Amino acid sequence: MEILVIGGNRYFGKRLTGRLLDSGHRVTVLNRGSSPTPAGTIPLVADRNDEKALEKALGDRTFDVVVDQVCYTPRQAEIARRVFAGRTRRYVMTSTVEVYEYEDSAVPVAEEVLDLAGVTVDPDLPWEDPEFLESHYGEGKRQAEAVFAAGSDFAWASVRVAHVLGGTDDFTGRVEHYARRIRAGEPIAVPVANRPATYVYVEEIAAFLAWAVEAEFTGPVNAHSHGPLTTAEICAEIEEMVGGRTVFQEVEVGEVSPFSFARSYVMSNSRAESLGYHFPHSSEWRRKALSETLAVSGRAA
């Protein structure tokens, strides 16, 4: 198949690209040109926020599937909906568990909990402001999904990715945050009611996205391993690796540590499994994932 990956240069995007190449697909990668595209891919350079530049870079190319790794806002979604009309038969958007950030459910949340038809889309918000975008990450993804759900000329799917763990190239710094505090015995701020969350191993989400490229489902699908994790479980693993002591500090208000959640929006992966994909249990990869990121022989030693 002819596949376009938008923004497939880092973390699980590059793993996805590698899997697509290994499967024999012809892969084009579009980015702003700030870093080289993976070996074996066809590079295209454009700012995806610039509609004319994007159209010029694409020219008359058409694709079987477009995988958009960096669609964060309704404005970007609207550009994609226009530009890829007639250029692809299927569009797969990488979304996030954070679309459920307002949920607080005693049971795992399924895709239909979020009514995309009821999401207010406002492309005129200051989406170009990095601070605004970061603080409205879930909202931006919600609105982007709503743009596609309202209708397009191509089949559309979104993969709502759980919190990702693993890899020596985890750039988030979240795992190291815990390692530093545990090693030093410093307090780790958590909500008074600290809820579990759903996670996925970095290699697993790459595998799922590669599977989704070849599948035919439409609409949103949750992607995560079985077995939600708590902050305490993650910290216990890290403590065994780096030494030190885990000290939790419960806070009523204010900023908490990265893997701490006052609301419960653990996802259900029943739809993905009914479509034919089987996820592992987090216990199968949790220690390996944390070890990779901590790089015990280096940063966490």
Rank of each mutant, 00 (worst) to 15 (best):
H224T: 05
C71K: 07
S282L: 14
G298Q: 13
E252F: 00
L290V: 06
R287H: 06
V97E: 13
P280Q: 04
V99Q: 08
G298F: 13
P280C: 12
C235M: 09
G59L: 08
V107F: 06
K141D: 07
R90C: 01
P38F: 08
R48D: 11
T88E: 02
V159R: 00
A179R: 12
N222W: 10
A212K: 10
E214I: 02
A215F: 02
T17M: 03
M1F: 01
R263Q: 13
Y72L: 09
V83Q: 02
G18C: 07
V202A: 07
V266M: 05
H224S: 15
E2Q: 15
E239Q: 15
F171Q: 07
D50N: 15
V109F: 00
E237W: 01
A289D: 02
E214C: 02
E284N: 07
Q76E: 14
Y100V: 06
K14N: 10
L20K: 06
G167D: 11
V175A: 01
L30T: 11
T198G: 09
G40D: 06
T172P: 00
P130W: 11
Y277K: 10
W285G: 01
R174I: 10
E98V: 00
Q249V: 11
D22A: 15
V200R: 03
V247S: 05
W285S: 09
F63M: 01
E101A: 12
F132N: 12
L16D: 10
E98I: 00
F171W: 14
E273H: 07
W127H: 09
R48W: 06
V242A: 03
S270P: 00
I205H: 03
E103L: 13
E101S: 11
A117S: 15
L20Q: 09
T17L: 03
F259E: 09
T62C: 02
G8Y: 08
Y91W: 11
V45L: 02
R19Y: 02
R160M: 03
A223F: 08
D129K: 08
V119M: 13
E139D: 14
A206W: 04
N269S: 12
P191F: 06
I79T: 10
A150V: 06
V66A: 10
I234Y: 02
V242C: 05
F248H: 12
T94A: 12
A184E: 10
V202C: 04
V65F: 04
D122H: 15
A144Y: 03
L125T: 08
V256N: 03
S95N: 07
Q249M: 05
A215L: 02
V113R: 14
D153T: 07
Y72G: 05
V247C: 05
Y72S: 10
